[in-house]
Design a protein around this nucleic acid. Structure first.
Lengths: 163, 163
DNA sequence: TAAATCGTTCAGTTCAAACTGAACGAATCA
DNA sequence: TGATTCGTTCAGTTTGAACTGAACGATTTA
C-alpha cells in the first residue's frame, strides 16, 4: 500500500512525537503510536517505517517498546508472515498499565533511596561527621520530602480510578 | 567556606540530578536544587559552582531557571554584594507553582491542538480528501482522547488540594 | 536445497541539548 | 578614576541518546 497520510494524521503524528520527546522518550516511538492510534487497520512494520520515513531498525525497537508498555498489540493476519501492529483503543488501560509498570516501580525505588539517605544521615551523626545543626536541618527536610512521597502514593491509585 | 559535602548531601544531590535528567530537564539544575534543599544556610553562586564542580555559567543559568519555577529564592546578605540562594522549604507550594506555571499551560495547549485536529478532520471530510471510514474512525479516537484530557483536568486540581 | 522475505541486533554516525571558557557590562571599592 | 568583583551572555565544545545501514538468523517459498 503506497497510500499517503491525511493532514490530520500527519499533524497528530507530529504532536505525539513531540509530546513523547518532551517527556524524555524517543520521538519516533511517539510517532509510531500516533500513526497506529489513528489507523483503522493494523500496519506491518515495513509500512510503519516507510510512512514515518524512519529506518526499519527504529520502527522495530520503537514498536517493541510500545509492546512492552502494552500501548500497542501485535496482530496476526492469516496468510501473511509479517507482524502487524495496532494501537490499543482503550487508553484508560494503557495509562493504567503505564502507571503499574513504569511509575510505581520508580516511585518505590525513590522511596527506598530516601530512606537510605535518612540512614546515612543518622550514621554520620553518630560518627560525629556532621554537626548537630546540619543533622537536624537535613533530617527535617528529608522527612518533609517523605511526607510528600506518601501523599503521592495516596493520590496515584485515586487517579487510576478517576481516569 | 571551603567545606566539603557530607555523604548524605552528596548522595541526595546525585539523586536529584538523575531525577531531573530523567524528566527531561538539565541534570545540573536538579543538582543545584538538591544542594540547596539540604543546605541550612544560603549559598552564593560561586560556591554552588565549586561545590558541584560545574562552571559558573551552568550555575547561573540553572539557578535562574529554578528561580523562574519559584523552587528557590534569592537572599540578600547585608554587606555582601553577591547573590545568595536558598531552596524554598515549602515543597507543596513549589509543586503547586510548578503545576500552575508548567503543567497547566501545556495541557491547555494540547487541548487546543486536539481541537484543531478535529477541525481539519471535518474539513478533510467535506473536501472528500478522506474516506467516510477513516473519518469516522479518527473522529471516534480523537473524541476518546479528549475525554481523557477532560478527566485529567478534573484530576489535577484535586491533586493540588491533596498534596 | 536454494532463494527470498522478515524482524532483530549491532557498530558507527548524527544530532541536539548541556556544559564550558572567555569576554563583557554593571556595580563596588581603592 | 582605575581596579576588582560580581553575574550574565555567547560561541564553541562535549556528551549522550536516537537513529541508521548492514549483517545476521529464522522462517517461508520455489
Amino acid at each position: 500500500m503506497e497510500a499517503t497520510l491525511s493532514k490530520t494524521r500527519l499533524g497528530f503524528i507530529e504532536t505525539a512525537g513531540g509530546l513523547c520527546q518532551k517527556v524524555g522518550m524517543p520521538r519516533s516511538t511517539g510517532q509510531i503510536f500516533g500513526l497506529l492510534y489513528l489507523s483503522s487497520t493494523p500496519l506491518p512494520l515495513e509500512e510503519i517505517a516507510s510512512l514515518l520515513s524512519i529506518s526499519k531498525a527504529s520502527a522495530s525497537t520503537g514498536s517493541r517498546q510500545l509492546l512492552g508498555w502494552q500501548a500497542i498489540r501485535q496482530v496476526w493476519v492469516p496468510g501473511d508472515r509479517r507482524d502487524f501492529f495496532e494501537a490499543r483503543g482503550e487508553l484508560r488501560d494503557v495509562l493504567r498499565a503505564g502507571y503499574d509498570n513504569l511509575m510505581r516501580p520508580k516511585l518505590d525505588k525513590s522511596i527506598r533511596k530516601l530512606e537510605g539517605f535518612v540512614d546515612t544521615l543518622e550514621a554520620e551523626r553518630t560518627e560525629g561527621t556532621i554537626s548537630k545543626e546540619e543533622y537536624q536541618f537535613c533530617r527535617a527536610r528529608l522527612q518533609q520530602l517523605k511526607k510528600i512521597q506518601d501523599r503521592v502514593h495516596q493520590l496515584l491509585p485515586l487517579a487510576e480510578r478517576l481516569l
